[in-house]
């Protein structure tokens, strides 16, 4: 039943070729250029490159506490957003899978809405909600709950709210997919053998959900690490993330080699996150 049909080598080439050629042309080649560019430098006061190879861009990143601070902020902010997304998405996904019934399709559609809206418009909408004169502060003030505005913009709180709003679907979707494949008999069997709810979660549900959790966490972490519109707008220049630094260098300072080096450092951390995810799946996936 699961037999792979006999595919001849030239058929394989024809099947894989178009996508491979596209990826090579629009991703691999520009990526290699990005890598080379990060070892060049910008001629001061000009848009020309000095193509003499140098590690100065990297030395500048790792030798300056400002850039290291930005890197650290970005990493822990992305981690925080991942954890919040996981905590919010887990009950929601379980409820949608088990209890939503005929509304399931609609609810999944609603929960992925932020993904199809783009980043800018929802973020600008959040400014109106979160600003000192915005809806949330206004409502709390008129209810007499607060005296002066809560600072919800221009700090980590605001940026985290924006990122969770934008990337929650990336956590919900993989969780729903894995939960749907989770046989409910396992839970029932465990409980009939006397396991309490907590133990069922700990020993049955979580290990089986692990691939979904890892996939969702990786997606949210990587998306938060590279997001720049949301930190830029909601951080009001006061939350320095690596992506907004790269944007500043690429689009405003026009120092492309330095911006490339920032991007490469970010890519290295994305790669490390991926490796960590694979490691977690292998270790704990097997243990279950």
């Amino acid at each position: 039943m699961n037999q792979i049909p006999d595919i001849k080598p030239h058929t394989t080439a024809m099947l894989v070729g178009p996508a491979a050629a596209l990826m090579f042309g629009v991703f691999v080649l520009p990526f290699l250029f990005l890598l080379v560019l990060s070892f060049w430098s910008q001629v001061p006061g000009s848009l020309q490159f000095d193509t003499y190879l140098t590690v100065l861009n990297y030395a500048r990143i790792f030798g300056d506490s400002y850039y290291l601070g930005g890197l650290w902020t970005t990493l822990w902010l992305s981690g925080l957003v991942t954890v919040i997304c996981l905590l919010l998405a887990m009950p929601l996904a379980r409820w949608i899978v088990l209890r939503a019934g005929p509304a399931k399709g609609l609810l999944i559609g609603l929960s992925i809405l932020p993904l199809v809206c783009g980043a800018l418009l929802p973020t600008l909408g959040l400014v109106n909600l979160l600003s000192p004169l915005g809806f949330i502060n206004g409502a709390l003030k008129s209810l007499g709950l607060i005296q002066s505005s809560l600072p919800l913009l221009g700090n980590i709180t605001g940026v985290a709210i924006g990122l969770v709003q934008a990337f929650l679907p990336l956590m919900i979707l993989p969780l729903i997919t894995t939960m749907e494949r989770l046989p409910q008999e396992y839970e029932k069997a465990a409980m009939s053998l006397g396991a309490r709810r907590l133990v069922v979660w700990q020993r049955i549900i979580l290990p089986l959900l692990l691939p979904g959790i890892v996939a969702g966490s990786l997606l949210v972490f990587c998306a938060s690490l590279t997001a720049f519109v949301t930190p830029q707008v909601l951080g009001q220049g006061k939350v320095v993330t690596f992506a907004s630094l790269a944007y500043q260098q690429a689009a405003l300072v026009l120092d492309w080699p330095f911006a490339s080096a920032l991007a490469i450092v970010m890519l290295i951390f994305l790669g490390l996150a991926g490796m960590l995810g694979a490691l977690v799946t292998r270790k704990f996936g097997k243990a279950s």
Binding site: P44, G45, D64, Y66, G69, V240, Q249, L254, D255
Partner: peptide, 22 residues
């Protein structure tokens, strides 16, 4: 302006640190 442009990279670092206080 030509002078300011030539300082751009260094001034951006200084702005980020000294003006934004980061």
């Amino acid at each position: 302006w030509p002078y300011v442009i030539a300082q751009r990279s260094a001034w951006t670092d200084r702005w980020n640190k000294e003006i934004m206080g980061q």
